[in-house]
Design a protein around this nucleic acid. Sequence first.
RNA 1: GGACCUGUGGUGCAGCUCGGAGUGCACGCCGCCCUGUCAAGGCGGAGGUCGCGGGUUCAAAUCCCGUCAGGUCCGCCA
Length: 579
Amino acid sequence: MTDKYQATSMRDLLCGSVDRTVIGQRISVCGWVAKRREHGEHLAFLDLRDRSGIVQAVVDGSVDVRSEYVVRITGTVSQRPEGTLNDRLATGEVELTDCVVEILSAAEPPPFQIDERSDVDEQVRLKYRYIDVRREKMQRNLRLRATVNATLRHAMERQGFCEVETPLLWAPTPEGAREFVVPSRLHPGEFYVLPQSPQIAKQLLMVGGFDRYFQIARCLRDEDLRADRQFEFTQLDVEASFVTQEDIFSFVSAAVLDAAEVATGERPGEISTMTWAEALDRFGTDKPDLRFAMDLHDLSGAFVTTQVKAFSAPTVKALRVPGGAEFTRSRLDTLTEHAKGLGAKGLAWFRITSDGLDSPLARFLSSDESAAIAGVDDAQLGDLILVVADEYVTACKVLGALRLVIGAPPVSQGPHHYVWITEFPLFEGVDEDGHLVSAHHPFTMPHLDDLEWIESDPLKVRSQSYDLVLNGWELGSGSVRIHRADIQSRIFSALGISDEEAQNRFGFLLGAFKYGAPPHAGFAVGIDRLVAIFAGEDNIREVIAFPKTQSGTDLMSGAPKNITERQIRDLRLKFAPKV
RNA sequence: GGACCUGUGGUGCAGCUCGGAGUGCACGCCGCCCUGUCAAGGCGGAGGUCGCGGGUUCAAAUCCCGUCAGGUCCGCCA
């Protein structure tokens, strides 16, 4: 149990913990002046703020302190006079009287107000992040993150996992995400890279006999940033030996559900599973948001012999929008543009009215086709049916995206709905050179029932890889790894990676596997995203102390910046002219 | 690499469609008044390269072109 008062040589308790239980005591508190309310020469109220909250001090008006001055106030905790209690303040029953105010640091007025009411542009917040994080919301978010970290760590230790730190300076493995590169001073012309994840390191630890490893690990990827993606992010990285997929689900579920319970006060039920194929078919995505229904429905059967050109496609899928018949024409046009932007040839819409289907296409449909559309998902009067006819995957993905645009509640609303997505395809397609591309990474174990198709029908091969999805966000992914040399070499061969190339890229891992590789599997949970959802934030920057902008700059430090001539010389770098 | 949105005193916004004096609102800041406030109140005041550059025009915050910065998304993220 943490010391409630957090006393130090300079203070006796935190501002927010000054309450009735200490009435009558002479105490000192330290903090920032949140607000000053003057009433003439001999009365003023100071609101003193620290990370725990605010307490009111009654002081002589002659004290010259301004907003954000850092002060130490020594006063007597007193019951507030009748009629002056403030029930909006946790400390509103008491106040400090007979105060002595020591100015520890004067302060200029801050560039923006530190209260929850003012909505400040993120550009300004990021430039003065050290002021921004004084705000209650940022304090809450970053402390929530610390609590989640501690809970995850404790859950892994409880399950017998050993935390091992792995290097930040690692060897390039040109595969997957673009790596950040670090030039070597002692070996000019050669480079380290910062790890995209500790993937290979943790597999080596399995060979090394650490049969339950975890790490709260920083990962770095030099890819474009998004609301849910920064250059550097933090994962609960997990790997275990002599396990199956189900064991991994059990370990990771325990940790994530512990964190959820601590963060939300409520322990979610057991996490359900859904295959990748089902997720795509029902929700048009591999990361379904299950907070709301609106499943996709397949109408292909009703349109096999259609005369309507727009519906002559391998797949015809439909989405029912409850109450959507009142969408305006311009809203429907916007949705149509959105669908086209995602690769659809068009978007057909049908309003369910008392006079039947209302749509520009309605008069072209056969009665069977009309009936199929009107019957989608038990459609009711006032609903809207959206239809996309295309290749299967396109039809699913386009309607899946529209489903989110139309139906998804804000991040901060609705229940937390976790789901494991299983049986991803092993290969996600073919690159320009005609080589297969791994969906996860080349060490992912194929589904044992599908081994026979690796050569004959590789795109049909399912893998033993899996994602954890929360409210439409991919929280993390993992897989059972290949520990058998014969299977690994068939996979490399399917990927068009020669023995020589495999040795060159992953030689030290493959070499290690010769010396006794246990069957193993792992997972990594994105902590930034997890905490963001717990905090009700739709942007991970809100749970990161010092995040970068979308263009990868740090508005506070000015990074990235030039280095000195001396540094350039030491590293023996030279620069190509700008193109 | 691409699409879209935003940029106006310290902060947040309005003004921009239909060009006419840096016009307005709220907060903050500074000064004065005020002995129970807590989004304190009253009076007064300071504070501007309308992101930047170019163009159109008698005249540009406003229209056009370019550019920079921030954001959302597509591509990218094994």
